[in-house]
Design a binder for these strands. Structure first.
Lengths: 202, 202
DNA sequence: ATAGGTAAACTGCACCGAGTAGTTTACATT
DNA sequence: AATGTAAACTACTCGGTGCAGTTTACCTAT
């Protein structure tokens, strides 16, 4: 009964996996349906039995990858804990997310296409709903609690994440830089927290 | 003599301009030499008289665009001026650079390819030499002058630019967000300076 | 439970029309 | 006559389809 995977489903998964690799390696335009089918060890016809077109297959993959991040980095404001402690946890989990293999794959696949056609980007993102990082809500709560200066929380969150991504995302995505070690991750998180609180703490 | 030169040279420039548009719109793979030639109002053969291949034409354009930014944002440390003032100027000129049409074109064209093949990215960048933002030298000087805490200057510069780019670069590049108005630019620059100095000022 | 039958899915190939980078040919302008 | 041009041409690759024949999954009748 563990063999609950019918052969058809298995093929479908093979196709999705192969397509993910193909798109990641060559981009949307560079990817070839023939090469993809060969990769999946499946007839091209079978690919088209499962997915009506290259574009639909691409969207399907993007959705699939996005779904695996529905558990957004959720940070709940807690009066009992210090700001430093809470922010540090948020920063670290964000870094972990940026580090995760599948998240980086998603960005490899999508961002290149988004640069070339921002309308595709916005359509995809609005369809996925803003997986808004909950950080700005946390900031609002902290402001209400009188612990932070009153500021535009979305803007401040953007700054906070910008500091982190400058060290732990963009260099890796664009220039193949090595991902920071756990010690470096802690430093990056710590520095982001220090800078943020130096500016906004009451 | 100049006339004959200017005529063929004019065609050459037409081709380069058309190629820049074509690559910007469709990326390297999506760009077509036929469409490009039509754009330049020039025979395809003429294109191949000037450039031996699509790839060489692409490299030529990237180089050309990169050259126009050889004048990196250069900031000289001045004891006589306040840190705020100097940093604000640096931030604003960086934002101006990020805002400039041709700089954004360059990134539109190159970053999409860089994401897909980071080895191309590193080879291009090392060929261009690190157009290192002079900011980290400024930071070193300020540290020597006893005005800033002793920190890794490159890392701190990365943080500073990360804050700015989070608001004035990535959203525009990836999500077609409107570029900040002059007032917003001042706010972004001001906030980046505030945050940086709140953290690092002695 | 097993044998048999049916419907669905898979395969491999040939094929289509469009489009690609790059080359040759034949014409027109000077 | 010489040169540079446009148009046609080569030799592909692409996404996608049609089809004949094979394999798999599953349901039923014994």
């Amino acid at each position: 009964m563990e063999k609950a995977l019918t052969l058809t489903e298995k093929k479908r998964l093979d196709i999705l996996a192969a397509a993910q690799d193909e798109f990641k390696e060559k981009g949307f335009l560079g990817a070839s349906m023939d090469s993809l089918a060969k990769r999946a060890e499946v007839s091209k016809r079978t690919v088209y039995n499962h997915f009506p077109s290259k574009e639909m297959l691409f969207h399907n993959i993007v959705e699939l990858l996005c779904e695996s991040f529905s558990q957004a980095v959720n940070i709940q404001y807690q009066q009992s804990k210090s700001l430093d402690e809470q922010l540090y946890i948020a920063a670290m989990s964000e870094i972990q997310l940026l580090a995760s293999e599948c998240f980086r794959d998603l960005n490899r696949i999508t961002l290149a296409e988004f640069i070339r056609s921002p309308e595709l980007a916005s359509s995809t993102l609005e369809h996925l709903g803003q997986q808004k990082n909950g950080l700005h809500i946390w900031i609002d709560d902290a402001i209400s609690d009188g612990k932070l200066k009153a500021v535009d929380s979305e803007y401040a969150a953007q700054q906070f994440l910008g500091i982190i991504k400058a060290s732990a995302f963009w260099p890796q995505l664009l220039m193949n830089q090595a991902f920071p070690s756990p010690e470096q991750q802690q430093i990056i998180a710590d520095d982001a927290v220090l800078m943020f609180l130096a500016r906004y703490k009451v």
